[in-house]
Simulated scan of single mutants.
Amino acid sequence: MNDAIEVNLILNSPIETIWDAITKPEIMEKWYFKVHGFELKHRCEFYFYEPSGENFKHVCKILEVEPLRRLRHTWTYPEISKGVSIVSWDLFKEGSYTCIRLRHQGVENFQDGSDALSVESFEAGWEDIVKRSLPDYLKSTLYKR
């Protein structure tokens, strides 16, 4: 796999809150995707569709779970590409802050699929998801307490 897409962010939220946001389907649906079949265990296979734009089926398999630290899974589009990529969510605690590092390796493996699967599309998508959608969701939960 070539260079990875990497997005980093520091949030003033407890690591437990961020972990729940990336591992609990009922929370993921509020800011990320509505995932089907997701269970936080090794080798669990789950899938989802994007809510807008190109509606490709994303199929993923969990490769690694380190509670409150790391979630790593495959990311594929079996209906349109033979490619496989790997997504890693890494969390680091720094005082009351949580550092998030999202890495997506292997997006170049989707060259046999749609033009919508370009590296540039993934970069823009992850920037929006990690730096806008997640913080917006977390802010909205603060006002509901």
Rank of each mutant, 00 (worst) to 15 (best):
N8T: 10
Y49T: 08
H42L: 14
E16L: 06
I10P: 02
P14W: 08
W31A: 00
V35I: 11
F48W: 03
V35R: 07
E66H: 11
I18T: 00
V35A: 06
E50H: 14
I22H: 00
L9F: 01
K61F: 06
K30G: 08
F33M: 12
H42G: 06
D20H: 10
E54A: 14
Y32W: 12
Y49S: 03
E6T: 14
P51A: 12
E54R: 13
G37H: 07
Y47C: 15
I18D: 01
L11P: 00
R69T: 15
E39L: 04
P14I: 08
F38Y: 07
E50F: 15
K41E: 12
N55V: 14
N55L: 12
P25V: 04
I18A: 05
P25R: 11
V59M: 09
L63E: 05
P67N: 12
E16D: 14
H58R: 10
E50V: 12
K34H: 11
Y47F: 12
N55F: 14
F38V: 04
Y32S: 01
E64V: 06
F38Q: 02
S52P: 02
Y47H: 15
K30Y: 06
Y49L: 01
G37K: 04
D20T: 09
T23N: 03
K24H: 15
K24Y: 07
A21S: 13
P14K: 15
E16I: 04
E6G: 05
L71W: 04
Y47E: 12
W19M: 08
K34P: 06
F38H: 01
R70V: 14
M28L: 15
G37Y: 05
P67A: 04
K30R: 15
K61M: 11
L63T: 04
I18G: 02
G37D: 06
R43C: 06
Y49P: 11
P14F: 06
V65G: 01
Y47T: 04
F33C: 06
P67I: 03
E6V: 13
I62S: 08
I62W: 05
A21Y: 05
E29N: 11
D20L: 04
C60W: 00
F33A: 01
E6N: 08
D20S: 14
H58F: 15
F33K: 07
E26H: 13
E26T: 13
K34V: 03
W31D: 04
F46E: 07
